[in-house]
Simulated assay, not measured.
Amino acid sequence: MHLKEFNAAGRDEAAAALRPCLDIQRWIDGLADARPYPSLDALLDAGRRTANPFAPAEIDAALAHHPRIGERAQGNSTEAKLSQAEQAGLGEADAAVAQALADGNRAYEEKFGQVFLIRAAGRSREEILAALNTRLSHTPEKEQEIIGQQLREIAVLRLEGLIEQ
């Protein structure tokens, strides 16, 4: 969708275009209601600012849509396709890295009660594994802060991929 089309779209259509980027209603409403945007950069900046910080319940809702790192999102929805493309960029992992990610995911979920979330785009599996191991030492409060940042990064990357200048 071009920015001009996004700006001119009806409220429901604009909200539907935003939902695969980040399924947090406050973020969707904030971006849809602030139209028109003079440039893609202005939209992306708004995407970064609109829900900063996220409330814990918003993070929980958003995490419900994210697969574990190293696992493919299921389905044919736009959100699933975006997640599949992001993780496909990781390439094939050797067996040791794949096992370490699986073990790390389990340890993270046991400690924090939620999936490990990281912006996969632009990172190797080894970089993600290193970040996972570092984040296992965090407090729950520190992790909430980092997850919020990762959600924003993912949302803005997806927004940039869906809306063209």
Results as ranks from 00 to 15, higher is better:
31 L>P: 10
32 A>F: 05
32 A>I: 01
32 A>K: 14
35 R>P: 01
37 Y>W: 05
38 P>C: 05
39 S>I: 00
39 S>T: 15
40 L>G: 06
41 D>K: 13
42 A>Q: 15
44 L>S: 09
45 D>R: 10
46 A>F: 07
46 A>C: 04
46 A>N: 07
46 A>W: 04
47 G>M: 11
48 R>M: 08
48 R>F: 13
49 R>I: 02
52 N>R: 06
52 N>D: 15
52 N>G: 00
54 F>T: 12
54 F>M: 12
56 P>V: 02
58 E>F: 10
58 E>C: 04
60 D>K: 14
60 D>S: 13
60 D>P: 02
61 A>D: 11
64 A>Q: 09
64 A>I: 00
66 H>M: 10
68 R>D: 09
68 R>T: 12
71 E>M: 04
73 A>C: 13
74 Q>C: 02
74 Q>R: 14
75 G>N: 07
76 N>F: 08
76 N>T: 15
77 S>F: 10
77 S>V: 08
79 E>C: 11
82 L>T: 12
82 L>W: 03
83 S>R: 12
83 S>E: 09
84 Q>S: 06
84 Q>I: 14
89 G>S: 05
94 D>E: 10
94 D>A: 03
95 A>G: 01
95 A>R: 09
96 A>E: 08
97 V>R: 11
97 V>F: 14
98 A>F: 07
99 Q>E: 15
100 A>R: 15
102 A>L: 14
104 G>E: 07
105 N>D: 10
